[in-house]
Write a protein that binds this DNA or RNA. Structure first.
Lengths: 212, 212
DNA sequence: GTCTATAAGCCGATAGAC
DNA sequence: GTCTATCGGCTTATAGAC
């Protein structure tokens, strides 16, 4: 079941050139869960509401997912790859120096955060809501995704010739995550821009051309 | 009722030299709500559970608080001043240069985050869980508190002679908030230390002695 | 694999006695 | 101001028909 699910996730993000097929019903359930969980949070959304949004009954939903907990996990797993791919394309499409390209990630995030349906980072909000359940599969999925982003940041900072890429990657990610959460509190996207300036400054100070 | 509530908050945080008295029942309710909401989140905690923890019935609770929403607001309002006071004392008790004293805030946070009952920032977790209710009184309370922290950071950075204290204050706060949230995901408090290094670096680069 | 129907219990909030 | 008792509705999850 885990293997089947993993294949489903891949198909969702555009890898269609594999022999295995995935139930369209399961895709419909996960897409409905994604929209509702992201919009309203985990406990605010009932399994009934997800089944209704997917256009099927609860019994069918429970045939495909053993519990609500595993549905929450699937929700985050389905978001992981598109999320990371967006970051990658924002960086790759940006021009200029390495600090400027890192800052470009934030300016793209700021555009996203201005959308009326934007509700912050689904991974962080889910981990926060389930903080009292440390071993929850959804928190593991969130941790996995954030580690993947951190590893990618480490790679590009290493390729750009920075000092101590692993540390710098964590610091940039905390600026991203801090910007996400504070915008959710204040509803002022200017914070994302300010975080981007901090990230660019940190990267700049860790380039070999810098005298620090 | 709002005025009465405001007085109650003050009495909770140690201002006892005022003529007004506050119902001990209301204090017991707010303390029970604080423990349960922080430990398990908002929707995971029922009004029944809070009443039971406070040692009284639901009817009595609803006599003192009109709704659960206002109880959530009271939960955050009660946490605001002790939270800010802790930050202030960590900074004031620290020795060394300004960057070192800013970094000391993070090392104190790291100790806090290592406590088994630590569940991140109650303000950010509540704002995240109620993200679909933008005008909720608890989100306003969270915004208010975070602005107070930002204003205090602006003051101490200004007093320390930094360039652009308002911008730097926001960046330091986003590093604090980013560290809070990512530790909740990974359960690795080393991130707080890494965020502290970034904050010290940013402050240092914005001091007049710096050549940037 | 999808349907209707329902179990068994918890939810926020309220009524009326004292 | 605190109590007992309960409302109507919603919760996750399951039973049995087809």
């Amino acid at each position: 079941m885990l293997k089947q699910f993993s294949m489903y996730v891949h198909s969702l993000v555009g890898i269609h050139n594999m022999k295995t097929t995935v139930s369209p019903t399961k895709i419909a359930i996960t897409e409905a869960a994604n929209k509702l969980f992201y919009a309203k949070g985990i406990r605010a959304v009932s399994v009934d509401a997800i089944a209704e949004k997917a256009g099927l009954t609860k019994k069918t939903l429970y045939y495909h997912f053993k519990s609500k907990d595993l549905l929450i996990e699937a929700y985050l797993q389905a978001r992981a790859r598109p999320n990371l791919d967006a970051f990658k394309s924002w960086f790759e499409d940006a021009n200029g120096s390495l600090p400027q390209r890192i800052e470009a990630i934030f300016s793209n995030l700021e555009v996203h955060a201005s959308h009326p349906k934007w509700r912050g980072c689904g991974f962080l909000r889910t981990a926060g809501e389930l903080a009292h359940l440390p071993g929850h599969p959804a928190i593991k999925a969130a941790s996995n995704h954030k580690k993947n982003v951190e590893a990618w940041l480490t790679d590009i900072l290493h390729d750009g010739g920075c000092d101590n890429p692993p540390l710098l990657a964590r610091q940039v990610q905390m600026l991203i995550d801090g910007a996400f959460t504070i915008v959710l509190v204040h509803h002022d996207t200017a914070y994302v821009r300010d975080a981007g300036k901090a990230a660019a400054m940190l990267v700049s100070a860790n380039l070999p051309s810098s005298n620090h």
